[in-house]
Amino acid sequence: MDITALLAQAANLMLTGMVGVFVFLSILIIAVKGLSKFAAPDEPVQPRSQAAKSKPAGAEQVPAENLAAISAAISQYRNQHFPSEK
């Protein structure tokens, strides 16, 4: 076989493979979109702005003692690892 025939066969094989992958992925995308419509939740999803504003019941602010302990730990860490920054 000469090089031209080999290159033509390689191009044909590459094109066949690329078309096969494209068709397979297209079918997969269509199937996933169809299944997502089939399995959609019954209740509407809240927009992020409303979901962020609503807090669960019992959610309170962090106690002052915890904030003081966290601040002290951060300060101690910075003093140990970054002593030149003050």
Score class of each variant (00 low, 15 high):
D2Q: 05
D2F: 01
D2N: 13
I3T: 08
T4C: 05
T4L: 07
A5H: 05
L6K: 11
L6G: 04
L7P: 00
L7N: 02
A8T: 09
A8Q: 03
A10K: 01
A11P: 00
N12K: 06
L13Y: 05
M14E: 14
M14G: 00
M14S: 13
M14R: 12
L15Y: 08
G17I: 01
G17R: 03
G17E: 02
G17K: 04
M18P: 00
V19Q: 10
V19D: 01
V19T: 02
G20M: 00
V21A: 10
F22I: 08
F22M: 13
F22W: 04
V23A: 12
V23Q: 06
L25D: 04
L25S: 07
L25Q: 05
I27W: 07
I27Y: 07
I27T: 10
I27C: 12
I29Q: 14
I30P: 00
I30G: 04
A31G: 04
A31L: 04
K33T: 09
K33R: 15
G34L: 02
G34I: 01
L35K: 10
K37S: 02
K37N: 09
F38N: 02
F38D: 02
F38L: 01
F38H: 00
F38S: 00
A39E: 03
A39W: 00
A39Q: 06
A40F: 02
P41M: 08
D42P: 05
E43D: 12
E43W: 06
P44D: 10
P44C: 08
P44G: 07
P44M: 10
V45G: 03
V45M: 10
V45I: 13
Q46A: 14
Q46H: 07
P47Y: 05
R48A: 14
R48Y: 11
S49M: 05
S49V: 12
S49C: 05
A52G: 08
A52Q: 15
A52R: 15
A52Y: 11
K53H: 10
K53L: 15
K53Y: 08
S54W: 07
S54Q: 15
K55D: 11
P56C: 08
P56Q: 13
A57D: 11
A57S: 08
G58A: 01
A59M: 15
A59Y: 15
E60S: 15
V62Q: 03
P63M: 04
P63K: 13
A64Q: 15
E65A: 06
E65W: 06
N66L: 13
N66D: 14
L67M: 09
A68G: 06
A69L: 11
A69F: 03
I70T: 07
I70P: 00
I70Y: 04
S71D: 15
A72M: 03
A72S: 11
A73F: 07
I74H: 01
S75E: 15
S75L: 11
S75M: 10
Q76A: 14
Y77R: 11
Y77P: 02
R78F: 06
N79H: 14
Q80F: 06
H81F: 06
H81V: 13
F82K: 09
P83E: 00
S84W: 09
S84K: 12
S84I: 09
E85A: 14
E85D: 12
K86G: 15
